[in-house]
Nucleic acid binder design. Structure first.
Lengths: 228, 228
DNA sequence: GAGCCGCCGCTTGCATGCAATTCGGGCTTG
DNA sequence: CAAGCCCGAATTGCATGCAAGCGGCGGCTC
């Protein structure tokens, strides 16, 4: 892995998990020092984070971690709704039986992490959920779309969403996944797109809801590897 | 304007207008020489073009102008359909009377460029059309969405689409613009989104149509061939 | 004669030094 | 006393040198 990629991954993780709070300054030489690199790869990583909307650049006055107002977060979900909706449509038009089987396997495992007795394992659930959505995009076979979704999905935000889910909302989320599998199986793109939109917009509705537990906002580790 | 921005603009223009054909190599030092800059800004511009999908990077083997297969171009239009559809919906939810008036003014001017007697002025029409779509996104008030649309709309491609338009298709395009204005005026987001989708998908349908005139087929799209 | 290994050139990737630009503070002047 | 200007510090933006990685070609071995 190149130094630029490392810098990008580390900075992105730090921003998303709250280690680098919104508004904090990101000086090239300081970061280079912190990460044990030179300014060049740090600079390139910052530029890329800028295009992803995670940092703001201010002329010659340095870069800062972008602040995400709640309305901007809602915008992000609106974007996800249409982009992942398109992905689901395309996936339905292309999915093979094996693809659907793989997705159903992920559904089963997700359901296992939320079975009554077991404590909620949000890490596992988030990971599986992420894999489900990514697998769907892989089936959709549009690298461009995949890359765009990657820039708008920030895993820790998704995890915070799960934190807010009531049992009923969590169950609905799982039902959406199952419904998507069914739509893919019969190749109904319109159905798949519609379900995916519902799925994302349902998640958005949780943004304005109080967290379900008072658990710490979980210093969510791991930001996904950027594969793009 | 910074050197990086200049390099980005020049390279992008060259790629889109066909000066740099798909598949041609883009060596950092050669480009730096051509543009009278050093490798650093050229390098940053190339990276940015990479995230925009206009160039492909091949590890330590250099960058090349991306080749756009016809299916990829169709994917781009599908992306535009959902993204601009969302933009139209948001615009309808926010437009003021003055916004609608400004858009209608643009419609009038577009219609003037296609009035019976006048020869088709595609440059003017493309420019006005671009302004119309951009104005709509400005009204939508979502910088993130605006940036995304910018990366998927490549003006010369749109112009080639106009080249293929029959008189009837051109008239339909204008009617779509008018209809969008009406939807914005009454604040009907669903209507606006629907019309915008139709508008973009109608344009996509022209991709597989033979050009209307025998005007230069725009040397822009052709497979690689450079070194092998 | 064919296959594999190692060397070499080409190009990017990274490091570092210098110039350009912006903002803020203090001094001068009306 | 207020306002404008100028200068300085801080930080990015750009240039250039150096090294690492990758592919191709030739030679060596079997």
């Amino acid at each position: 892995m190149t130094a630029t990629q490392r810098a990008h991954a580390l900075l992105r993780a730090g921003i998303l998990d709250g280690t680098r709070p919104a508004g904090s300054r990101l000086r090239e030489d300081t970061l280079a020092d912190e990460l044990g690199l030179s300014r060049t790869p740090v600079r390139e990583a910052l530029q890329r984070l800028g295009t992803e909307g995670l940092v703001d650049h201010l002329a010659h006055r340095g870069a800062r971690v972008a602040s995400w107002s709640s309305t901007e977060e809602e915008e992000t979900f609106a974007l996800r709704a249409v982009l992942e909706g398109l992905g689901a449509r395309r996936a339905a038009e292309r999915a093979t039986a094996a693809d659907v089987a793989a997705l159903r396997e992920l559904c089963t495992r997700m359901e296992a992490t939320t079975s009554p007795g077991a404590p909620r394992d949000l890490d596992a659930l988030t990971g599986l959920n992420h894999r489900f959505h990514h697998e769907l995009l892989r089936i959709a076979d549009s690298p461009r779309l995949e890359a765009m979704v990657d820039t708008v999905i920030h895993v820790p935000v998704v995890m915070r969403t799960f934190l807010r889910y009531s049992d009923a909302a969590l169950a609905r989320s799982q039902h959406h996944h199952r419904e998507l599998c069914d739509a893919l199986e019969v190749g109904d793109g319109g159905w798949a797109e519609s379900v995916m939109r519902s799925h994302v917009l349902a998640a958005r509705a949780q943004l304005t809801t109080a967290p379900r537990t008072s658990a710490t906002p979980a210093p969510a580790d791991r930001a996904q590897e950027d594969t793009a």
